[in-house]
Design a protein around this nucleic acid. Sequence first.
DNA 1: AACTGACCAAAATAATAATCCGGTCATTTC
DNA 2: GAAATGACCGGATTATTATTTTGGTCAGTT
Lengths: 195, 195
Amino acid sequence: MAERKQPDRRRQVMEAAARSFETFGYKGTTMDQVAKLAQVGKGTIYTFYANKEELFEEIMKGLIQELKVVADETQDGKLPFADNLMNVLHKVSDYRDRHALAAKLSQEVRDIGTPMAKEGLEKVEKAIIGYIARHVKEASDKGEIRPCSPELTAYMMLKMYLALTAEGHHLHEPLGKEEILESFRFYCFEGLAIR
Amino acid sequence: MAERKQPDRRRQVMEAAARSFETFGYKGTTMDQVAKLAQVGKGTIYTFYANKEELFEEIMKGLIQELKVVADETQDGKLPFADNLMNVLHKVSDYRDRHALAAKLSQEVRDIGTPMAKEGLEKVEKAIIGYIARHVKEASDKGEIRPCSPELTAYMMLKMYLALTAEGHHLHEPLGKEEILESFRFYCFEGLAIR
DNA sequence: AACTGACCAAAATAATAATCCGGTCATTTC
DNA sequence: GAAATGACCGGATTATTATTTTGGTCAGTT
């Protein structure tokens, strides 16, 4: 009963859109282009999605889903919270950097500042913070770390991680992977105070 | 002997430039404008400064100097390092936010991304980090805080402080002054680890 | 009923004209 | 004759206009 008597147009559109957004960015993909790639009349797209924005959001949801899978796969129940956290940050950041769609959108924001592209990437960041926040809460409840606001803590963790991995602004030497891990543990978990 | 038989043209130029840059931004000030404000022929400016860039750098040096004075005045030898640090961060950030030149340049970078304006603000940030780094090193030598790389630590401190004070990106609620201080102490000095 | 693509207005881009501005230097001032 | 000036230059920027593109619609086809 799963015969495709008719080609699945919704899937065709989604896949075409995904390819187009990651190749040409948000601004660079046109609805005509997507229709052509999907081998579908342009009007057909509008039977599934109200507009370009909605189509884009659907694709971004997919990226966030992928990141969640990567993060879940990285977690190891036997490891302490700090190790899991650092592994997840590393893996997710790495995956995001390498993912064609995210990379293209970053470049688009840098180069021409497309608002939709910025918004999309913000949603990804927000999803990452939400994901971390859930695990922070869990660790906090289990007494693995000190009590804290999960949301704010997750936000600070991501900011600290990004500050350490950031290069480009020549404010500090680019750090090696080991240095990043060590520094992250130092600043995020241990703190500067004498104990 | 300190009579001003001739008007001090260098000073006139500097003051005019300072007023112009803080009113119109880097791009918005023209050399003609500065000459007129300084009541000086345009060519005269070029006897003191090789070009517009150099004139701008002179003015930025002045801003950095002002910030250093504010920071030094904020320090209180009797207070522990953490308190001094937080006071300095608060005062300097506040002063910078209110300073017309810095405010204008920030807006210019946001709105049109003038490279020179960005560069100038980066120099300010670098100066702040350098200043903090010196005090971190001192505190570290005195054993007030754990041993650490002063440069990297100062960088991380500023980033953490800015992350906490940042609003606009709606990634977390804007925090009150007390919450900022408390959170900064928590994340920067105490750390998440159970002790 | 599902699908299509010619069509439209608005927005983006390209082409062109007009203006501005950093920097120079021959001339003037003292 | 050293210091100061401002008219002047060409490259860059901006304003103006013409042209093309594009998101979205809908009358017509399958």
